[in-house]
Nucleic acid binder design. Structure first.
Ligand code: FES
Ligand code: FES
Lengths: 147, 147
DNA sequence: TTATTCGTAACATATAAAGTTACATGAAAC
DNA sequence: GTTTCATGTAACTTTATATGTTACGAATAA
């Protein structure tokens, strides 16, 4: 299965934007991510719909963050992306008449929903500001190594 | 992404086999699951490699469970299937030089590995015997409704 | 008026799960 | 021993979905 990497992508883009003055264009972000500008627009458009970023057209246009880094967490971003399916493993048949399949599905769904709940809790706990700080720490320690 | 439904499939097959005397052929299981006999052989073959089922060829051949229902849990089955990827969401680039991406990946992997650990714990807690019992309960309560 | 940039539809490609065909191998029935 | 039944597997096809690409319209500033 091909994994959905949009959350990773938008995080990368947002952190890049956080470290950058002024708007960044889809083309620049796409080059940064090793992705396609249209895909960037498509994906960032979802964040725009959620009010997390704003877009401006024309000269000196592009994307900028429209929220406080402290107030945006990973869960919000996941939601802004439409809450895509988290698991690559699933039930064969979601609406089985067969009682055996019902038992199987119930057991699996129990386990998966617990794991999903934990993941969402972890996501809610990490803000863009946290990531920016982690980046700053990594940046500083790399400079230490160089010196 | 297309979700991997093999765990669900083999559980369905195993419970069916648990309720059934004698071996069951790939064709019968496939019909039960609404799947393909070759896919059944392919998938059950992994369980055979793990010693969980045995296969016999020729007349009166087929698959049978080769372990105590109490001693087989969902985690073992997941492992027997080759521990396929659990998440449909992932990092864009697993080996980034970019420090921003490193921060993003680290944060996401933290959250995902916690969720995966919880899922594996839940899986380890559910045995085939548990599922068979749950099935028996559902079967009984359906008969109650009918009467 | 021109250059730039987003917005979006339509189509193309890539990847992986599941399905399918084909045939070899082995075991029981006759 | 020959036939029938069943697994074992390789090779290929289909299907689903994420991502990429092309094309063009709309808005905005130089
Ligand atoms: S921050 Fe732009 S390439 Fe990673
Ligand atoms: S148990 Fe065979 S169809 Fe569900």
């Amino acid at each position: 299965m091909k994994r959905d990497s949009r959350l990773s992508s938008v995080l990368h883009a947002l952190l890049h934007m956080a470290e950058h003055d002024g708007p960044m264009t889809s083309d620049v972000l796409a080059q940064c991510l090793g992705a396609n500008p249209v895909v960037v627009r498509r994906t960032m458009g979802l964040l725009r719909n959620a009010g997390l970023v704003s877009a401006a057209r024309g000269h000196a246009g592009g994307w900028r963050i429209a929220a406080d880094l402290n107030s945006v967490n990973l869960r919000q971003l996941h939601e802004a992306l439409g809450e895509p399916a988290i698991f690559a493993i699933g039930n064969r048949n979601e609406n089985p008449q067969c009682l055996v399949e019902q038992s199987v599905n119930a057991a699996l769904e129990d386990a998966f929903s617990d794991a999903e709940a934990l993941l969402m809790t972890r996501f809610a706990d990490v803000t863009l500001a946290d990531l920016a700080q982690d980046f700053a720490r990594r940046y500083a320690s790399r400079r230490d190594v160089k010196e």
